[in-house]
Amino acid sequence: MKKQSARRSTHLAWSALSIVVLVAAWQVAASFSDPRLLPGPGRVGATLVAAGLDGSLFTNIGITLARVFASFVLAMTIGSAIGIALGRVVLLNRFFDPWLILFLNLPALVIIILCYIWLGLTEVAAIIAVAINKIPNVAVTLREGGRALDRDLLEMASVYRIGRWRTLRHVILPQLTPYFMGAVRSGLALVWKIVLVVELLGRGSGVGFVIGSAFQLFDVSTILAYALAFVAVIQMIEFLILQPCERRLNRWRR
């Protein structure tokens, strides 16, 4: 235990050092360039504090997070169901595989624009557009999980007649956990980036909207301030929610 915490603090020290060096490099680069094109850390920090003090930073990040959450839950639910079905039923997979490949390769921008055209510039259209972008990735990952289910354990469940619900809860879902967590990880990274694009194109609030307005005003400092704040928030989600979750789910491993 002591050893582990010691290792963790060395790891933290290296991360801190790495960030300090990055900020220093940024400062050096900024001092050689036009402050309008590349503002230094001090100026971006000041913009960040100002946006935080007038509350706009928190409202916009909150709105974007809500959209990330809604489309993420939607995509994980539908994508997992599709993926597991494709992984278990060969015929379904044969038929729908080309569809999956089509949706995997459809550019995010095309899906977003079509959703806005067909459903209007609404919140629902925005969330559906992001979800559709993510669903194929989730489905592909969970399909692998569905294929890899342990036959011995499924036979055991069938002989002992434990029923569908218990089989799902105790036999199938625990085996899918690593695949599900993989989809969550890559999903979080993908979804928030697409949400920004959706906000830029058709919403009047959120981090993507602010960055879009800043682009019109050539306000690089605001762009960087919001981007950094949002990256920090996503990292917090990873540290405070995903990692503890994963540790709990992996308790049984040797």
Partner: peptide, 15 residues
């Protein structure tokens, strides 16, 4: 009601 003891234990490792 059938009890089946398989060649391998077939226990759920996560329970």
């Amino acid at each position: 009601r059938m009890g089946y003891v398989f060649q391998t234990p077939r226990l759920l490792p996560w329970r």
